[in-house]
Amino acid sequence: MQQPNKYQITAHCTIRQNKVFRNGGLLYEDQKALALKDFSEGLYNHLQIQYPKFYKMDPLSKLGLLATEVLFIDIPSIKLYQPEEVGVVLSNAHSSLDTDIRYMSSVQEMASPALFVYTLPNIMIGEICIRHKFKGENSFFVFKEFDATFITGYVKGLLDEDLVKACVYGWVDVLNQDYDAELYLIEQNHQ
């Protein structure tokens, strides 16, 4: 007899080339946005989010935050978990290089504290956790390309060990105007 799955992917989001897909369906598109900043702010407005701190974030954190907002559409149960029960495990290729470069430029005149705080990629995880009040396990990995086998295995380990009951995981990468996000929400089966 086949064992029932202990967990399942309950939502999936992809953001690339000015398009946003949720569970495979096109949710949003803005081909007029020439810059990532314009695209991100357009998506923010489209999702009708009220979170002024969004505007202070660096492009990587904005993209990660928006991807999780898309992920949680129609997932009201995410709010039912205890803060420690939801983990966030992300990865990318360019770490926080996009902001690091701008920070280095700003140092020529006067270093910006607001820019400096984003010169680590796991700050994106922090922003997501603050927004959704998650306090579960979190990790950030830097790979040349999305290593689905590794990261899925890592997340399943967290679920198997009962360290989390749900986890946001995937890939969020930004460098200059190139960006790519692919996030998954995996949850323990309640049946």
């Binding site: 005149e109 006067m110 910006s112 504290p113 607001a114 705080v117």
Partner: peptide, 12 residues
Amino acid sequence: IDALELIVLLQQ
């Protein structure tokens, strides 16, 4: 962090 930015604003 905003407080630090205000210090930068005063200087700049």
